[in-house]
Amino acid sequence: MTAAEEGHEVDQLRVVAQARLEVAVGEGRLTLEEYSDKAAVVWSPTADRALLAQIVPYSADPPAAVSPPQSTIVGVFGDTKRSGRWSLATKTLALMLFGDVKFDLRSATITAHSSTITVVSIFGDTSVVVPEGVSVELGGFELFGDREFDGGRQDAGPGAPVIRVVSYSLFGDLKVRAR
């Protein structure tokens, strides 16, 4: 096999591995962080045929339970924090009065290619941590507050999950960062 043919085969394996990763994260078999780590390997220049064939082995395990399409969180004079292994709904709404919202999505499972987190906050800060390699879109506004976004070092690959963070805040900050 020539070097050009081998390069073409590796490119085809990359596309197949990426598609399998997308299915696995959509079914909840991979967390966003696991997806991000594996996608980085798939698209690294040093990936070879053997590594790509093993990156997402076929699994006959049934898919994880599907999270609800919507989730609503209401907090008054208290903070809300979600981290560890949890299911991110397709649409999450957090209404906070005098409290902070902290979401850590690195170990969260998602069932949709794109998820929206909407936060309405009066006198409270919002913090969202996503794994590197996940596409993040920001919207909304902060009145008397700051907006900070750190996308990390790794670009989102083709077909990466999309997390939309929409924040409407009065006297509060929004911080979104990739780790």
Score class of each variant (00 low, 15 high):
residue 2 T to R: 02
residue 3 A to M: 13
residue 4 A to C: 11
residue 5 E to Q: 12
residue 5 E to I: 04
residue 6 E to C: 01
residue 11 D to Y: 03
residue 16 V to C: 01
residue 18 Q to G: 00
residue 20 R to F: 00
residue 21 L to H: 06
residue 24 A to N: 13
residue 25 V to Q: 03
residue 26 G to D: 05
residue 26 G to K: 01
residue 31 T to M: 13
residue 33 E to C: 09
residue 35 Y to F: 14
residue 39 A to I: 12
residue 39 A to G: 12
residue 40 A to Y: 13
residue 40 A to H: 11
residue 44 S to N: 01
residue 45 P to Q: 15
residue 48 D to I: 15
residue 50 A to N: 06
residue 50 A to M: 15
residue 51 L to F: 07
residue 52 L to E: 05
residue 53 A to T: 08
residue 54 Q to R: 14
residue 56 V to I: 11
residue 58 Y to C: 07
residue 60 A to F: 08
residue 62 P to K: 08
residue 66 V to T: 15
residue 67 S to R: 03
residue 67 S to P: 00
residue 67 S to L: 14
residue 68 P to K: 15
residue 71 S to L: 15
residue 71 S to A: 14
residue 73 I to D: 05
residue 75 G to D: 10
residue 76 V to F: 05
residue 76 V to Y: 01
residue 79 D to N: 03
residue 81 K to P: 04
residue 81 K to H: 04
residue 82 R to C: 00
residue 84 G to A: 05
residue 86 W to Q: 05
residue 86 W to G: 10
residue 88 L to T: 05
residue 88 L to M: 07
residue 89 A to V: 14
residue 90 T to S: 09
residue 91 K to E: 12
residue 92 T to S: 05
residue 93 L to S: 08
residue 96 M to I: 11
residue 97 L to W: 14
residue 100 D to V: 14
residue 103 F to I: 12
residue 109 T to H: 03
residue 110 I to P: 01
residue 116 T to A: 02
residue 122 I to N: 11
residue 127 S to A: 11
residue 129 V to G: 07
residue 131 P to R: 02
residue 134 V to A: 04
residue 136 V to K: 07
residue 141 F to I: 12
residue 143 L to D: 07
residue 143 L to K: 08
residue 145 G to S: 09
residue 152 G to I: 05
residue 153 R to H: 03
residue 153 R to K: 11
residue 154 Q to Y: 09
residue 155 D to Y: 08
residue 157 G to Q: 06
residue 158 P to C: 00
residue 159 G to R: 14
residue 161 P to H: 10
residue 164 R to L: 05
residue 166 V to E: 07
residue 166 V to F: 03
residue 167 S to A: 09
residue 175 K to D: 07
residue 178 A to H: 13
